[in-house]
Nucleic acid binder design. Structure first.
Length: 158
DNA sequence: GCCAACGTTGGC
DNA sequence: GCCAACGTTGGC
């Protein structure tokens, strides 16, 4: 089993939105970056994922979810009315993929980016904290996952 | 709204 | 294949 982090702008899709979905599942669509796509294609059912709120007042890890379906072609790429439409992608050779995720839990208190930065020395190579990093789907090592989960417990946020 | 950093596109 | 121009991300 592997660990990941995925970003979403809460104005577009928040962890509360996920928690309200029927079955608390959702295809993680709209990813339009090759590296992020490759990470999604490397995911397996059962993998755990941090839900991160980006481009908002308080960027933070806000909860966890679990991959519940392997990456499949993202339907939005073929829909001219979708903001995620990609006219260059053809149905016989889809360019963009989406895994499906299931809501797991919301942290009682978000683990903010600024709080995470205080632990940067304990999270060497954690892509979220790396300069210029803006990937919306990124891997988290076992060690970093455990360290961050312990942080949330230490702060009594779970 | 600003801007640094990164990704993509397209002319050559 | 290079690289300038442009677009996007995302923190602040």
């Amino acid at each position: 089993m592997a660990y990941w982090l995925m970003k979403s702008e809460p104005d577009t899709f928040s962890i509360d939105d996920l928690a309200r979905r029927p079955g608390k599942t959702e295809p993680w669509d709209g990813v339009r970056n090759y590296q992020a796509r490759n990470h999604m294609r490397a995911m397996a059912v059962g993998d755990q994922v941090f839900f991160y709120h980006s481009s908002c007042a308080e960027p933070a890890i806000v909860g966890t979810m679990r991959v519940c379906a392997d990456a499949a072609p993202d339907a939005a790429q073929f829909d001219p009315k979708s903001p995620y439409y990609d006219p260059a992608s053809k149905p016989d050779a889809p360019r963009w993929f989406a895994v499906k995720v299931r809501y797991e839990r919301t942290l009682k208190k978000p683990l903010t980016l600024s709080a995470l930065r205080l632990h940067a020395d304990k999270l060497p190579g954690f892509q979220l904290l790396m300069r210029g990093s803006r990937l919306s789907v990124l891997p988290v090592s076992d060690e970093h996952w455990d360290y961050i989960m312990n942080l949330t417990r230490a702060k009594d946020t779970l």
